[in-house]
């Protein structure tokens, strides 16, 4: 059985094309799409990420701090930290204004922690989408 030929790897476009879009998209969810004149998609992304993050805060979810030990600890804590940090200004404002909660037992707090990470992960998807549009790989 013959394998399908691999699609050629696309060269990375110059950072001037997409750098500001991705940076804006990280800081304010959906801002990359607003800069690229996709206001409806930007508004949907902004509202989804912000509401998910706020629900996580209201459920008293905890923010992860990077920890290095065994592999599982590193993946959970450092991965969770990257997820939290990906929410951009929402994460930074939470830390600066002292709204970060200590880890607590209970299913609601647990859901809150997952909502906070999920908001960051949604923003990563939005940033990748904005990058692809800015780089001309997607409409």
């Amino acid at each position: 059985m013959s394998k399908a030929p691999k699609p050629p790897k696309l060269p990375l476009p110059h950072i001037k094309l997409w750098g500001h879009v991705v940076l804006a998209g990280w800081l304010v969810p959906g801002a990359g799409h607003f800069l690229l004149k996709r206001p409806i998609r930007g508004a949907i992304l902004l509202s989804s990420v912000v509401v998910t993050y706020l629900l996580g805060l209201l459920m008293r979810g905890a923010l992860f701090q990077p920890e290095f030990g065994d592999l599982l600890t590193t993946i959970i804590y450092t991965g969770g930290f990257v997820g939290d940090l990906s929410a951009g200004l929402l994460y930074l404002a939470t830390v600066w204004m002292g709204y970060a909660q200590p880890d607590a037992a209970g299913h609601v707090h647990d859901y809150g922690t997952k909502f906070l990470v999920a908001a960051g992960l949604m923003n990563i998807l939005a940033m990748v989408d904005a990058f692809e549009i800015a780089a001309g790989r997607k409409d």
């Binding site: 949907i44 990420v49 509401v51 299913h107 859901y111 909502f115 949604m122 998807l125």
Partner: peptide
């Protein structure tokens, strides 16, 4: 909680 998670995740995945 899981319903809200499903709604917002689906919105982002769709967009």
């Amino acid at each position: 909680a899981s319903l809200l998670f499903a709604i917002f995740s689906s919105l982002v995945l769709g967009v």
